[in-house]
Design a binder for these strands. Structure first.
Lengths: 341, 341
DNA sequence: TTGTAGGCGTTATCAC
DNA sequence: GTGATAACGCCTACAA
């Protein structure tokens, strides 16, 4: 029995197929310069032995690992999990494996993880946002590991970006609420510390308001972690101010759902008393009552397109380096015209 | 400049530290039998050169890859994404990397993915459920790759299981609804084809009903993919039967949320007209109105405990081989006593 | 405590 | 079309 512990190696296949290891390697790698009859002998021998190539040896010799890494803030948030789902699916079609790490929004931890990924030999890395430690990008460049930013349209020089313009998104939200006649607006933003996406959305929102003469100092802004409870409590703070806003833009559907929950529990009618707007268009946007007006982020598409970039040849990559995806306004029941004074 | 393309290797560090490669290796691997002064010289040299070890070479030589694989149905469902989040976090603490694959509930695809993971050299694999192709488990056993089932408490011989008893869970749900006085019950189950968890839940539910004399042939059961819309439409079918159930158990909170949506849209009051019960206790369970009565699945804990098993020594593993976790009944507003006849 | 040498399993470069 | 042969970068006896 050839079923020795661990299993057969390439040389065992060669022996069984009565040829040289080189030929086996050629067959396994689809090299066409092999006699048809020999090829079949090799394939049969490999099957019979239950041969599985040793990826480490292959990687060491060929410098191609077929490994890609991704560092995302967390998998507990659907917006990232969905992106990774798309990324993985597309990579798997090409037999590329994905190593995934969660940074919990900590860019120092992200650096450590990038190091480990480089050590594992990943050929590319998918990152979230464009804000990273300089050491992180320097490392990737020095080690010739390609990288792709997601959820942003700002690409850093040698890297690529697949995403959208967060500032523009913030402006779109503001514009929509302004057009409904609101003048007292507030925002529950994500934590902007080390988070360029949350910051971009906030900046865009305030800029659009400033453009119509609403002073940013007058706009109540609270930051919150992306959790239902945080959205709820921040909404409580916002609504207990002397000058209640009539419309609140939230940096995520989770926060918006929490905000609506607060309103429910406190007899505040949405959207009659206050309009609430979300961001992401997650599944939960259809579960609140009223359902959530929000901006749709194409999470799965971002993952797929990031994969496409990674799988592309250096030549094709030029065209794919910067992809700004559209984010769509989804109007549902949680927003309404400003109440008459 | 030593910043040659790709980067320094172990031997370069040795040269710069004026010692042998063996000593560098010892330092890097924490071997204590190294002179303190030499150790520091090596560490400094490594830092100055920006040395990153080559994982492939290391793995090839030592047969330890520090790689673990996971094959889950999808990341688009929070119940799995959360488990993976816990798994990854715990593994990362020990510098073990996680390769993740989604099988889309297809056990043939799962086999292909297991093969690829073995090729990558993973030391263990985390699987969902206990139903797999025999070839899959045979491969893992032959290649000496440990495996852990999750979301189930049935362990296959050499493998481990971290999860819960799905049948018991189904019985718990039935018991709760029976105790509320319901006698006309229905279920919207997940797709049971190739899914032992969905099947277990369904079987348990029906068994408990049978135990009180309710014939399973009389219990309407529909299967649905885990999507809001499917839950909604199945609920429509259930409620348009001549003999409407007064209580419906859903195999997932997603389905239950969809079911409640159907009721909303069609003037059916929950829980007055019909009680709806979910499964998983996802975040969305707090977003439906009324909020969802459900059974809590400890997804993150399962991931963490699976990691603990994987990281444990062979000796410790004996104790961790079968872990049945408790699933907790969470009573909220979507269930109520059966209406008086 | 440190250095030398051999080999892990594969692929690439030569010849033939 | 096929077969030797030499690396790939590292770890680990073993020797010193």
């Amino acid at each position: 029995m050839d079923s020795e512990a661990g299993g057969a190696k390439l040389i065992d296949v060669a022996k069984r197929a009565s040829c040289s290891p080189a030929t086996v390697s050629r067959v396994l790698n689809g090299n066409p310069t092999v006699n048809e009859e020999v090829r079949e002998r090799v394939l049969r021998a490999a099957r019979e032995l239950g041969y599985v190539p040793n990826g480490s040896a292959r990687a060491l010799r060929s410098t191609r690992t077929r490994l890609v890494g991704a560092i995302i803030p967390t998998l507990a948030h659907a917006i990232y999990a969905t992106m990774v789902d798309g990324l993985q699916a597309r990579l798997a079609e090409k037999d590329v494996s994905l190593i995934i790490n969660t940074s919990t929004y900590d860019i120092d931890l992200e650096y450590e993880q990038a190091r480990l990924l480089v050590e594992r030999g990943v050929e590319s890395i998918v990152l979230v946002g464009s804000l990273h430690r300089p050491e992180t990008l320097a490392l990737l460049e020095q080690k010739r590991v390609g990288y792709v930013f997601t959820y942003t349209s700002d690409a850093a020089e040698p890297g690529a970006a697949v995403g959208f313009d967060n500032e523009k998104a913030g402006r779109t939200a503001a514009r929509y609420l302004l057009d409904l006649g609101h003048t007292r607006l507030g925002m529950i933003a994500g934590i902007t510390q080390d988070n360029d996406r949350a910051k971009g959305r906030l900046d865009g929102f305030l800029k659009e308001l400033a453009a119509v003469g609403i002073d940013r100092a007058k706009v109540p802004v609270l930051e919150a972690a992306y959790r239902l409870d945080d959205g709820r409590s921040r909404m409580g703070e916002l609504m207990s101010r002397p000058q209640r806003p009539t419309a609140v833009f939230c940096g995520s559907d989770i926060l918006a759902a929490g905000a609506i929950k607060h309103c429910h529990d406190n007899g505040i009618a949405v959207p009659r008393d206050v309009s609430v707007m979300g961001f992401d268009n997650l599944e939960i946007a259809e579960l609140t009552s009223p359902e959530l007006t929000t901006l749709e982020v194409p999470a799965r598409d971002m993952g797929r397109l990031a994969a496409d970039y990674i799988l592309a040849s250096p030549l094709q990559r030029r065209h794919l380096r910067q992809r700004e995806l559209a984010i769509r306004l989804i109007v549902r029941g949680s927003t309404a015209p400003a109440p008459a004074r």
